[in-house]
Simulated scan of single mutants.
Amino acid sequence: MTLTLTWSQILAWRLRRQLVSAAGGADAVAVARRLCGVQAQVASSARLAVALRSAEPDPGGIDRALWTDRTLVKTWIMRGTLHLLPADELAAYCAAMSTLRFWEKGSWQRGHGVTADEIAAIVEAVPAALAKAAPGALGGEGSPGALGGDGALTREELVDAVVDVTGDAHLREALTSGWGALLKPLSRLGELCYGPPREGRVTFTSPRAWIPGWPAALPPHEEAGVRIARAFLGAHGPATPEMFDTWLFGGRARKAVLKGWFRDLAPELTEVETDDGRTLLAPTEHLNDLAATRPSDEVHLLPGFDQYILAAPRTLAALIPPPLKPKVSRQAGWISPVVVHEGRVAGVWETKSGEITLDLAAPVPQAPLDAAVTRMSALLRPGSGHA
C-alpha cells in the first residue's frame, strides 16, 4: 500500500529537517551541508539563514569558515547563483553541474557577445592565470601571485592575467562587459571560486590551490549526482526528479543524465502520494519519520532567498498560496523574506527604520508571531553581526 502524506506533514518535516523548527545547527558548515548550500547573492540573507538555524548563532562563523578554516566555499553553482557550500562537497557539485555545458551553445555565446573560440580561450586561460598567481608559482616579484600574497586575484588583476596568458587583448573587452556570466563556466568546472576580500574588493582563486584536500580530478558525475539528489531529498523531499532539476539546474538538466541519477538512487527511494494527488519520491529511511510527523502550528520569520522557499517550486500552492506568489517571487529573481505559519507562507516582511514590518495575507496567532519577530529582531540588531 502506498503511503499517503498531507502537505502539512511534509512541510512540518521539512521545517524540522532544515533546522528551522529545531535550530540545532552546530556551525555554518553544518547548516550549509544540511540545506545543500545557502544562497549568498545577498550576504545578509545568507547570514540570517545560518543564524536562525544555529544552536548558538556565531556572528563571525561564516567568515571564519570561508577565509580562515577554508571549510566553507563561496562560488557560483546551483542555477548559476552564488552559494555557500561545504568545501569538501564542492567537487561533487561541480561534477554534477558540469554535465550541462551551456557555454558551448551558439545561442549563449551570441547572447553574451563572445565567439566559441573566445569562450574556449577564457576557459583555458583562467585556470592558467590562477595557477600562475598561486603562492610558490614561478614569476617572482611583480608577478600576479605577488599582488595578493594568497594566490587570489581581484577582477582587474584576473583580466590582466588572462590577457597576459593568451596574448589576446580583445578578451579584455569580453571579460569586462560580461564579467559574471563569462566566469560561471569556470566555477562549474571546479576551476574558480571566491577568494578572501581585499580592501572591500572581491577576489577569485582556484579551488585546487585554496581548498584543502581538493581532488586531482572531479568525481564521476554519476556518483556525484546520486550523492546530491540523496542529500536534497533528505532535506527538501519528498520531491520529484523535476523538482530537483529546477533547484539544481533551473529545469535545464540533460534528461538522460537526470534519469540516470534517479535510476541509480531508486533502491533507496519509495513513492508516496500527497493529499493533492501528486506522486513524490521519499528516502525510504525517512518514511517512518514522515508518517509520524504531525502538522506544525509554529510561526517563523525566514530571510529573503531562504532555501525553504528556493528548493520548492514557486508554483507549489501548498507552500505559497497563489495570491501571495507575486509578493514572494518578485521581479529580477528577488525572493522576499516570508512569514511561515503551519509550514505555509502567510505573508512577507521587511525592515523599515530598523523595525520589522509585516504584510500578512492570512490570520497568524499573535503570541507565536510576536516570538518570531522578537527572535528575528535580535538577529537583525546592530552589532549582532548577522544583518
Rank of each mutant, 00 (worst) to 15 (best):
E141S: 15
P365F: 09
L358W: 04
A346N: 15
A367V: 11
T374Y: 03
T176Q: 04
G343H: 00
P215V: 06
G385P: 09
D150T: 07
D297Y: 03
I211G: 08
A169I: 07
T6D: 12
A116S: 14
F232Q: 06
A32D: 06
S177R: 08
G347A: 06
A12T: 09
S329H: 10
G385T: 00
R252Q: 08
L379N: 12
A181R: 13
L380I: 12
L316D: 00
A134R: 03
T75W: 00
L84V: 03
A152T: 06
R79A: 06
L265S: 06
T246P: 09
G304Y: 00
E350S: 14
W179E: 06
V73I: 15
W214A: 09
A121P: 00
A318S: 14
D88P: 07
R227A: 10
W67S: 11
G61F: 04
R17N: 04
P326L: 00
E173K: 02
T166Q: 02
V159T: 03
R294K: 02
V73S: 05
D117T: 11
L35Y: 11
P382E: 12
A96K: 03
L153D: 01
W103A: 02
V348G: 09
T166L: 08
I10Y: 11
R79S: 01
L158V: 08
D297F: 09
A125K: 04
T203K: 01
K132R: 15
L369N: 04
L379S: 07
P57V: 01
A120K: 05
R230M: 02
A22M: 07
D275V: 12
G140P: 01
R155I: 09
A253H: 05
E89V: 00
Q366Y: 12
P220L: 14
L316E: 12
G106Q: 15
R330D: 14
I122Y: 03
I320M: 04
G237A: 02
T374L: 04
A43R: 15
A291T: 01
L360K: 12
A121F: 00
Q39P: 01
L138F: 15
A49N: 07
R330K: 12
P220G: 13
V73H: 10
L380S: 14
R188P: 02
C193G: 07
R14M: 04
P321V: 06
S98W: 06
G333E: 14
K255S: 13
T293I: 02
H341L: 09
R110M: 10
F305P: 10
P303A: 11
A371S: 14
L153Y: 00
P207G: 03
L183W: 14
D245S: 00
R375P: 05
M1F: 13
L233F: 10
D306H: 08
P86E: 04
G140N: 13
A137C: 02
S296F: 08
V123G: 05
V162P: 11
G61I: 03
I228G: 05
G277I: 08
P86G: 03
G37H: 01
R53G: 09
E118F: 13
R230F: 06
G190Y: 01
E298N: 13
G80R: 04
R110C: 12
P365E: 11
P267S: 00
Q366C: 13
A121V: 01
D63Q: 13
T293N: 13
P220I: 14
I77G: 03
L147R: 02
K74W: 05
A87N: 10
K352Q: 13
R208P: 06
L72Y: 06
K352I: 14
G61C: 13
A332S: 15
C193E: 06
